Simulated assay, not measured.
Amino acid sequence: MKAGVVVFPGSNCDHDCYYALNSILGINTEYIWHKEGSVKGFDLLVLPGGFSYGDYLRCGAIAKHSPVVDAVVDFAEKGGHVLGICNGFQVLTESGLLPGALIRNKNLKFICEYVSVIVENAKTGFTSYYNDGEILNIPIAHMDGNYYIDEKGLNDLLENEQVVFRYCDADGGISEEDNPNGSVYNIAGVINKKGNIMGMMPHPERCCEPLLGGNHGYYLFESIKNFLKGA
């Protein structure tokens, strides 16, 4: 198995993702520069967090025009697995690979803290090492993490079980008070209908080992590793 971490100008979580995949999970991992026009030979692509192109215009709006994104879109449309984290999630929505959009946080402030999220769908290739209803303690760090989708789009997500993670309290209760950024339906992560593209605002790569204060994120990478290896 081979993973690629896409690097845009302004990415700042690329090394974190590389470390999680390569050093902790033991996955052969390489960086992919934004000017690359091919992603041939990779089994998994990760679009990391950061501030691609300085977040000018909108988060991810310029990054979607990078040569590598055309290759990512082609890879995904042919069934390749793609994970977008934070800014990577924003790039995936901007490029049309995932529905919805990420807009400014409801409090208009940058948020950097640990939050609780509940696993809504543990049947995906990215979440099989979790259980439905499991509560994760996982960090967020974003200014534009407010997930928006219209009513019809939300109904489609729910009907197809595409909502993967939701913000909650420590006991799994879901309310506006436990929604850090104002996301519709407390959504923290979604997946496409085919199940090969997932985006999430929380940072699993930042909680992959006890040394970092917890390892709830480890099981996301272990899930996709074993799914792609056919284990």
Score class of each variant (00 low, 15 high):
residue 1 M to W: 08
residue 1 M to T: 02
residue 1 M to Q: 01
residue 5 V to G: 13
residue 6 V to N: 06
residue 9 P to A: 01
residue 10 G to Y: 10
residue 16 D to K: 06
residue 21 L to F: 13
residue 26 G to Q: 03
residue 33 W to L: 14
residue 36 E to K: 15
residue 37 G to Q: 13
residue 40 K to G: 08
residue 41 G to R: 04
residue 42 F to Q: 06
residue 44 L to P: 15
residue 44 L to G: 07
residue 45 L to K: 07
residue 47 L to K: 06
residue 48 P to H: 13
residue 51 F to R: 07
residue 51 F to E: 04
residue 55 D to R: 10
residue 55 D to T: 07
residue 56 Y to L: 06
residue 59 C to S: 12
residue 62 I to L: 11
residue 65 H to Y: 15
residue 67 P to M: 08
residue 69 V to C: 08
residue 69 V to A: 04
residue 71 A to F: 15
residue 74 D to A: 08
residue 74 D to I: 04
residue 81 H to K: 15
residue 82 V to M: 08
residue 83 L to N: 02
residue 85 I to A: 02
residue 87 N to G: 07
residue 90 Q to R: 03
residue 91 V to R: 00
residue 92 L to A: 00
residue 92 L to K: 00
residue 93 T to V: 07
residue 95 S to K: 04
residue 96 G to C: 06
residue 96 G to R: 03
residue 97 L to M: 08
residue 105 N to I: 10
residue 109 K to D: 00
residue 109 K to R: 13
residue 111 I to M: 06
residue 111 I to P: 08
residue 112 C to N: 09
residue 113 E to R: 14
residue 116 S to E: 01
residue 120 E to A: 09
residue 123 K to N: 14
residue 125 G to I: 14
residue 126 F to L: 14
residue 131 N to I: 03
residue 132 D to Q: 15
residue 133 G to I: 09
residue 133 G to D: 08
residue 134 E to H: 08
residue 135 I to E: 00
residue 136 L to R: 02
residue 138 I to C: 05
residue 139 P to S: 04
residue 140 I to T: 02
residue 144 D to S: 06
residue 147 Y to S: 00
residue 149 I to N: 00
residue 151 E to L: 05
residue 151 E to K: 09
residue 153 G to I: 00
residue 157 L to E: 00
residue 159 E to V: 09
residue 160 N to V: 05
residue 161 E to T: 10
residue 161 E to S: 15
residue 164 V to P: 10
residue 165 F to T: 00
residue 166 R to D: 00
residue 166 R to E: 01
residue 169 D to I: 10
residue 171 D to T: 14
residue 171 D to Y: 12
residue 173 G to D: 06
residue 173 G to P: 12
residue 175 S to K: 09
residue 177 E to S: 15
residue 177 E to I: 15
residue 180 P to K: 06
residue 180 P to I: 01
residue 180 P to A: 03
residue 182 G to Q: 07
residue 182 G to K: 12
residue 185 Y to E: 14
residue 190 V to A: 02
residue 192 N to F: 10
residue 193 K to W: 07
residue 195 G to Y: 11
residue 199 G to T: 02
residue 201 M to H: 14
residue 203 H to I: 01
residue 206 R to H: 03
residue 209 E to R: 13
residue 210 P to L: 11
residue 212 L to Q: 09
residue 218 Y to G: 01
residue 219 Y to L: 07
residue 220 L to V: 03
residue 222 E to C: 07
residue 223 S to N: 05
residue 228 L to F: 13
residue 229 K to P: 09
residue 230 G to W: 14
residue 231 A to M: 10
residue 231 A to W: 14
